[in-house]
């Protein structure tokens, strides 16, 4: 088996088996989406208007939830040392770990989004649009989050700090994701413009995330 495949399969298995795996993130997503109507009121018209934003914020928070363990678990049990000595480029290791992490936690969020969209009264076009934007945008959240996970890897309780560090960097993803989703059902802009910006950000994160997180892991070992 190719080393990248081996790493992907292993990381995916661990993410899926430990702590409820994908389910816990989806559950959290459900909880966040559920509290919104209690906060803003059950007016279906208004929920339809803010629904895409609610789903996006839920997905952002659910993504941040598991990220602090992305490298920390490996550091605590000694795996990180061995990964760094393996002769494989840390950037690619980060990339594969992010891919597996996204497949195990991000993808279930995307898949569950259409169901949760019903709770916020989105029309079918909007459901499709929000799911598509989440599919394009959540990898960027994971990759940007990996930078935060990398720089906080040596902190015992880095979870909250990680969120503080990552949220400002995730704002563009949120802006273009929500804009594209709302634009699909009429709005001042066409659907494609923000979607393409979102794609650009995801591609950019694909490079920046692994490079920065790889560098952070290199300097963190001790």
């Amino acid at each position: 088996m190719n080393w990248m495949t081996a790493l992907f399969v292993r990381e995916f298995k661990i993410a899926a088996r430990v702590g409820g795996g994908a389910l816990i993130g989806v559950l959290f997503f459900l909880a966040v989406v559920t509290v919104f109507p209690f906060g803003v009121g059950p007016d279906l018209k208004m929920l339809a208007r803010i629904g895409a934003a609610v789903l996006w914020i839920g997905a952002l928070l659910a993504t941040l939830l598991g990220l602090d363990r992305l490298f920390q678990a490996d550091r605590e049990d000694g795996t990180l040392d061995l990964l760094l000595m393996s002769g494989r480029p840390p950037e690619l290791i980060v990339l594969v770990k992010c891919a597996a992490h996204w497949a195990a936690t991000g993808l279930p969020l995307v898949i569950s989004a259409p169901v949760l969209a019903l709770f916020v009264n989105l029309e079918p076009t909007a459901i499709g649009a929000v799911t598509l934007t989440l599919l394009v945008g959540t990898p960027a959240l994971t990759l940007i989050g990996a930078v935060g996970a990398g720089v906080t890897v040596s902190l015992r309780r880095g979870g909250v700090l990680l969120s503080i560090l990552v949220i400002p960097l995730a704002i563009p993803v949120l802006i273009f994701g929500v804009s594209a989703a709302t634009a699909a059902v009429g709005g001042p802009t066409p659907f494609l413009t923000p979607l393409l910006y979102l794609c650009a950000i995801s591609l950019f994160a694909l490079v920046l995330g692994p490079v920065a997180a790889g560098a952070a892991l290199r300097v963190a070992s001790d």
């Binding site: 081996a6 298995k13 040392d81 061995l82």
Partner: peptide, 28 residues
């Protein structure tokens, strides 16, 4: 080098064989 330190670098949720096979295909 191989480094055999205090930490076992094992993932408790994976079987012994899965743990070992991973290093076998991953390590250069």
């Amino acid at each position: 080098c191989h480094y055999f330190g205090h930490l076992d670098a094992l993932k408790p949720s994976l079987t012994a064989l899965e743990n070992l096979s991973f290093w076998r295909s991953f390590y250069e």
